[in-house]
């Protein structure tokens, strides 16, 4: 069983005893013991995954880390959040996924217009199954709960990931002011409804929506 520990808010330590984890390519910073690193073509989802990821632009550079000992992961000093999944589904951008346990399946899903406004493309990565995953955020992420009756609105640039049964909808408040370049910078928002958790980072990616 791979165990995930946070060494600090920006460094993840994974203890391995002969098993393997999937990690973002090149994210290893140190290890002790014996480890092997192998690139997994197509995100470890076989030929079908390879083709899907090429087409959808959710190309995920993944490597398999296998061995005995402890391996430390970090990427560009971004903050790391641990997510434990018990049969539910995590939606996350491929670039924000750091490490997943081998018991988790990864795939791609269509997000529609929301993706385009986030500057993320039309597709997102899903992680499914039971186990732990580590996701990255620019600055410490906050987890916001969505319940029926209390929907949540998020800036597309600050959205990192979500779990649970949520429906999402892109809303825009583009008016006359936006058209003449006097927008508030908050012309697009994502509405989440249903039951689940949304991870939001304290920083905004450059998005088309953010310019308006």
């Amino acid at each position: 069983m791979a165990t995930f520990r946070l060494q600090s808010t920006r460094v993840l330590a994974v203890d391995l005893a002969g098993d393997a984890v999937k990690a973002k390519k090149g994210a290893m910073v140190a290890y002790d013991g014996e480890m092997t690193f192998k690139k997994m073509t197509g995100g470890g989802e076989g030929l079908r995954g390879l083709v899907t990821r090429r087409i959808t632009g959710e190309a995920m550079e993944v490597m398999e880390v296998k061995g005995h000992g402890t391996c430390w992961f970090a990427d560009r000093a971004t903050e790391i959040n641990l997510v434990r999944l018990t049969g539910d589904k995590l939606h996350v951008e491929a670039g924000n996924l750091l490490v997943t346990e081998p018991s988790l399946r990864t795939g791609t899903t269509f997000t529609g217009l929301r993706g385009a406004s986030q500057g993320n493309g039309l597709f997102t990565t899903t992680v499914e199954g039971t186990g732990q995953a580590a996701i990255m955020s620019d600055g410490p992420a906050i987890v916001l709960r969505v319940t029926p009756g209390t929907p949540l609105v998020v800036d597309p640039g600050a959205y990192v990931a979500h779990t649970g049964r949520l429906t999402q909808q892109l809303r825009s408040s583009v008016g006359l002011r936006t058209l003449i370049g006097e927008g508030s910078g908050e012309s697009f928002q994502v509405h989440f409804e249903g039951e689940g958790l949304v991870y939001v980072q304290p920083s905004e990616r450059n998005t088309i929506g953010g310019q308006m």
């Binding site: 808010t9 140190a30 002790d32 970090a74």
Partner: peptide
């Protein structure tokens, strides 16, 4: 990004990027 320390002991080498 922050620094973390790893001890190196005989018989247990550490590999670093």
């Amino acid at each position: 990004g922050g620094v973390f320390e790893l001890p190196v002991t005989p018989g247990r080498p550490v590999h670093v990027d």
